[in-house]
């Protein structure tokens, strides 16, 4: 048993290492992943320019979230899509380690690069604004920020499973991306959405995490009105649910693809 968990941890680090090496082999990919956060940051700054500092903060939190989605969530699904594209899904699945650990390794890398994306948005807005943004509780804010990324990663793992399942996952994810921006309140408060959609938004960990971030950073912010701790509980619970789902989904998806035999399709 000890030997087994050891090899899982090794697979995770091996996959993290490969993700970094793959990235370093072609660092020009950094440019699009940097440009998106800069644009998100500038657009939200221009939209809310001249309004109160807290409103700007509200907007850039959403913008930061959107760019982190791109890096973390989209990146996690995309990496599995790459395994399909390269034809490496087959040899990886014949290896004794469950594929989930390979995905986790990549998710860690995407999380780190997602943090960069979020930081860029902040930097861009701070420069445009001319001074650092007023944060009510900087330390808690940063910790929560890391947790936000982890919650995104949890959703990303579920998306990876979709890529193992079918080569059409990219299509689903592209539609999902827009739904995500709107549904989790990145773009505007979810209370503005039709009432029926609110419970759906609450199924996404980032909805909670983003609300908690805003509660923390913006004095007097109401949001979902469960307060910081309520948000945090919601975020942790939904993230845990996603991770649990990912675990079972992965073993089922693995079985499914071995039945269908579409592993090599691209």
């Amino acid at each position: 048993m000890a030997a087994r968990s050891y090899s899982r941890l090794r697979s995770l680090t091996a996959s993290l290492r490969l993700a970094i090496l793959t990235f370093l082999a072609d660092p020009q990919w950094l440019i699009p992943s940097m440009i998106a956060p800069v644009i998100f940051g500038l657009v939200s700054f221009m939209l809310f320019q001249g309004t109160s500092a807290t409103l700007v903060l509200y907007a850039i939190l959403g913008a930061g979230m959107m760019s982190m989605w791109g890096q973390t969530l989209y990146g996690s699904g995309w990496a599995t899509g790459q395994d399909r594209n390269l034809g490496t899904l087959e040899p990886t699945l014949t290896a004794p380690t469950p594929y989930l650990y390979v995905v986790l390794g990549r998710v860690i890398w995407n999380t780190i690069s997602g943090l960069f994306g979020g930081a860029i948005v902040f930097a861009v807005v701070a420069v445009a604004y001319g001074r650092p943004l007023p944060l009510a509780h900087p330390l808690e804010f940063v910790l929560l920020f890391v947790f936000v990324i982890l919650s995104l990663a949890a959703v990303g793992i579920v998306f990876s499973a979709a890529y193992v399942y079918t080569r059409y996952a990219g299509f689903i994810q592209n539609i999902g991306e827009f739904a995500f921006y709107v549904g989790t309140g990145c773009m505007f408060p979810i209370v503005l959405l039709p009432f029926w959609s609110n419970p759906i938004s609450l199924l996404f960990p980032p909805t909670w995490a983003l609300d908690a971030l805003r509660v923390l950073a913006i004095p007097g912010y109401q949001g979902l009105s469960w307060g910081f701790w309520g948000d945090l509980v919601g975020a942790v619970a939904t993230t845990a649910a996603y991770l649990a789902i990912a675990g079972t989904v992965f073993s089922r998806v693995e079985k499914h693809v071995l039945e269908v035999g579409n592993l090599k399709d691209w």
């Binding site: 090794r10 091996a14 490969l18 390269l86 034809g87 490496t88 087959e90 040899p91 004794p96 380690t97």
Partner: peptide, 19 residues
């Protein structure tokens, strides 16, 4: 197909050795 094209042979092998 079936290999990680952007890294070298040694890294490909190291990855699978770990797996």
């Amino acid at each position: 197909r079936g290999l990680y094209n952007r890294v070298n042979a040694r890294e490909n092998l190291r990855y699978f050795a770990d797996l």
